[in-house]
Design a protein around this nucleic acid. Structure first.
Lengths: 182, 182
DNA sequence: GTCTATACAAAGATAGAC
DNA sequence: GTCTATCTTTGTATAGAC
């Protein structure tokens, strides 16, 4: 599943094959298929695991009374920075979004859940920060949350294309300045 | 080329095949290959045409003395809205960005040129609007330009996943409010 | 769980007739 | 420019031995 995820994040789901994974893991192709009878099964399992990993980490930081909304936001930034640093990866679901119509219904639903959950988490963090006076926001927190998510996903994709390491940091700094109280 | 572009925008480059195009156009597979000897040749031609189309339209609106920077920005929004409306398409180069490492060097370079050019066009529009007092911006126009581009590309991808037609409009409205002079 | 062997379909690409 | 026919490789997937 690690290998599958890495392949999707770098080359995309369509381009990933059981053979690629078999070579990376060091076993033969049918041995992979024994665990995941179809490519869709594998894809669904990888997305579900990815979603759960993010979910538990983000819920954890959200519920930690020691962490401010600023801490939560910076924590949210870290995986984007890590993907950008380590080997030209993008967000798993960002890659899958580009070939969305090619995915089966089950995988489409997994990707959809991932992004809807993210949007809601970001909205709650922004609301909390606004209420506590940490962020300066207008009333449209949900619109700003989805703008923020869109900008980060887009920046990660563009970073790999333009090869400009500042791409992500520029977007994050812009976001910080937009919500920092003057 | 129209069919190829549509297939890439909906299902991705890896998933697109000569056979798919042949069926859409109504001729046989080798007839397509006669015009584009390899899949990379076809991909490169499609990107180049797409890039030129955007370039001429954007340069035209930029040089039109009747158009304000606001007009230019709204004009820039229209293709994103059109893609979102017509058949679950995303930006051609946004789709290609998700499977970037799978593309050959020539195609990678075409995609890179597209986005670098876009960033520069947006930056010039923002600069012009700022100088003329139409936009309220801090000094970091280039960072804001790439945030804007990232957000729009991301929003188009997310719109197809979340199936929320407001996704794009929310992001655009957020952008308008961020740069509108108070 | 892993393997060999194999089936079957689809991919990109070429040759050569019309 | 388009076609039929073909080549070669690669893909997902299955059967069955170990």
């Amino acid at each position: 599943m690690d290998s599958a995820q890495e392949l999707i994040q770098t080359r995309g789901f369509s381009a990933m094959s059981f053979q690629d994974i078999a070579v990376m893991v060091g076993i033969k192709k049918p041995s992979i298929i024994h665990h995941f009878p179809s490519k869709t099964d594998l894809g669904r399992a990888v997305i579900a695991r990815y979603h759960d990993l993010f979910k538990s980490a983000l819920v954890h930081v959200q519920e930690d009374p020691e962490k401010t909304p600023w801490d939560a936001l910076e924590f949210y930034f870290t995986p984007y920075l890590d993907f950008g640093d380590a080997g030209n990866k993008v967000c798993l679901c960002g890659a899958l979004a580009g070939e969305f119509m090619e995915l089966g219904e089950t995988m489409q639903h997994e990707v959809q859940s991932f992004f809807i959950w993210h949007e809601q988490w970001l909205e709650r963090i922004l609301e909390a920060g606004h209420a506590a006076g940490h962020f300066k926001l207008n009333k449209h927190t949900s619109q700003f949350a989805r703008t923020l998510l869109s900008a980060l996903q887009g920046a990660l994709l563009l970073k790999r294309v333009t090869r400009d390491p500042k791409q992500l940091e520029d977007v994050m700094q812009t976001i910080r300045e937009l919500i920092a109280p003057s």
